[in-house]
């Protein structure tokens, strides 16, 4: 009797982690559509996707281990690499966007980086 209880519990944990993962990725894509400019969209994509992918990978890892007895190191590695690389890609895309002249949203209140870019442009022109 105790065995079935544990199986049920593990099934519930696996489904919960898969569902939270999909929920976070779904929210990230909705944020991508709703938010007004590239920078805020990047917020949604770089952050929402990391926990989403982590959830799905943990769910898949647990499922493979419990059902088939496979310890899949690839899933854990994939999770770690997504966690490490997504902030870097967000940084690079936003930086490239800024230097290509993508405007901030109309309601933005502050932009300290504009001065630095202006000074740099001047020094290059001279």
């Amino acid at each position: 009797m105790s065995g079935t209880w544990i199986n049920l519990l593990i099934d519930i944990i696996i489904s919960l982690s898969l569902l939270t993962g999909t929920f976070f990725i779904f929210s990230a894509s909705i944020g991508m559509l709703r938010f007004p400019d590239i920078y805020i969209r990047l917020h949604a994509v770089t952050k929402g996707s990391t926990l989403g992918i982590a959830g799905i990978m943990i769910g898949a890892f647990l499922f493979l281990y419990v059902e088939h007895g496979i310890v899949s190191g690839k899933l854990i590695l994939g999770m770690i690499f997504v966690m490490v690389t997504s902030p870097i890609s967000g940084h690079m895309i936003s930086r490239a966007g800024y230097h290509n002249g993508v405007k901030l949203w109309d309601k933005s209140v502050r932009d300290d980086y504009a001065e630095a870019v202006k000074e740099k442009r001047k020094s290059i022109d001279n």
Partner: peptide
């Protein structure tokens, strides 16, 4: 992640972004 999900489902986009 939790913070961004809250923002995504906010009915009105009333924040003030900036650098």
């Amino acid at each position: 992640n939790i913070e961004i999900v809250k923002l995504v489902y906010k009915p009105k986009l009333d924040f003030e972004p900036g650098i």
